[in-house]
Amino acid sequence: MRLSTKGRYAVMAMADLARNGRERAVSLAEIAARQEISLSYLEQLFARLRKSGLVKSVRGPGGGYRLAKAANETVVAEIVLAVDEPIRATRCSGQGTPRGCMMGGERCITHNLWEDLGAEIHAYLAAVSLEDVILNRTSQRRRALMASLSEVAA
């Protein structure tokens, strides 16, 4: 999976916002200090998050950002995708294109393995909400997802 600092930092910042922004707007400077992320980097990320409708900006004294939806309604996959991070594990260029990663354009012998892994990662991140993250319930979500996958396979 290609998940760079962009995706990880966006999730960290959104989790911080979910935890600290229940009663008020939270400034990016506060998030930057708590999460040790560059303020200018956060500004870039939050521009994308706002454009995707995941956060709302609040102007004026006490301004900052708030979640656009409740923490239990915002899933990690949305955040990662909002900052232009593809959730895939193959090295092939672009999803949905027939062009593979080999010199002649063919798909490598393990392409389906990595493509399936990317789909599993996406399914997991789509099943985990910000509320799950801040309440440390991610392992419960993983177990629930694995149980449902076992049922489908049976």
Rank of each mutant, 00 (worst) to 15 (best):
V26E: 10
L28N: 06
E30R: 05
E30D: 12
I31T: 13
I31N: 03
A32R: 08
A32Y: 11
R34H: 13
Q35E: 15
E36D: 13
S38I: 00
L39M: 04
S40M: 08
S40T: 14
S40R: 15
S40Q: 11
L42I: 06
L42E: 12
E43D: 11
E43P: 00
Q44R: 15
Q44A: 10
F46D: 08
R48L: 11
R48Q: 14
L49H: 07
L49F: 10
L49Y: 08
R50H: 12
R50L: 09
R50W: 04
K51P: 00
K51Y: 07
K51R: 15
S52R: 14
L54V: 05
V55T: 06
K56E: 14
S57H: 13
S57Y: 12
S57E: 15
V58Y: 10
V58H: 11
V58M: 11
R59K: 14
G60C: 09
G62N: 09
G62F: 08
G63V: 08
G64C: 08
G64F: 08
Y65A: 02
Y65S: 01
Y65F: 15
R66S: 03
R66H: 02
L67F: 08
L67I: 07
A68P: 04
A68F: 10
K69P: 00
A70D: 14
A70W: 03
A71H: 05
A71Q: 06
N72M: 03
N72S: 13
N72G: 11
N72V: 01
E73M: 12
T74N: 08
T74I: 12
V75E: 05
V75H: 13
V75K: 12
V76A: 09
V76K: 06
A77D: 09
E78K: 10
I79M: 08
V80Q: 03
L81D: 06
A82I: 02
A82C: 01
D84C: 00
E85F: 05
I87H: 03
A89N: 09
A89D: 10
T90V: 14
T90P: 04
T90H: 13
R91G: 05
R91S: 05
C92F: 01
S93K: 14
G94I: 06
Q95I: 04
T97H: 07
P98G: 14
P98S: 10
P98A: 10
P98Y: 10
R99L: 14
G100W: 07
C101M: 03
M103P: 11
M103D: 03
G105R: 12
E106C: 01
E106T: 06
R107P: 00
R107Q: 07
C108Y: 02
C108A: 08
I109G: 00
I109S: 11
I109D: 12
T110H: 11
H111L: 02
H111W: 15
H111C: 07
H111S: 02
N112R: 11
N112Q: 10
L113H: 13
L113I: 11
W114G: 00
W114I: 00
E115M: 06
D116W: 05
D116L: 10
L117N: 04
L117A: 14
G118F: 09
G118Q: 07
A119Y: 05
A119Q: 14
A119K: 15
A119M: 08
A119N: 12
E120K: 10
E120I: 02
E120M: 03
E120Q: 07
I121P: 00
H122P: 00
H122R: 15
H122S: 07
H122A: 06
A123R: 12
Y124E: 03
Y124V: 02
L125N: 05
A126F: 02
V128G: 01
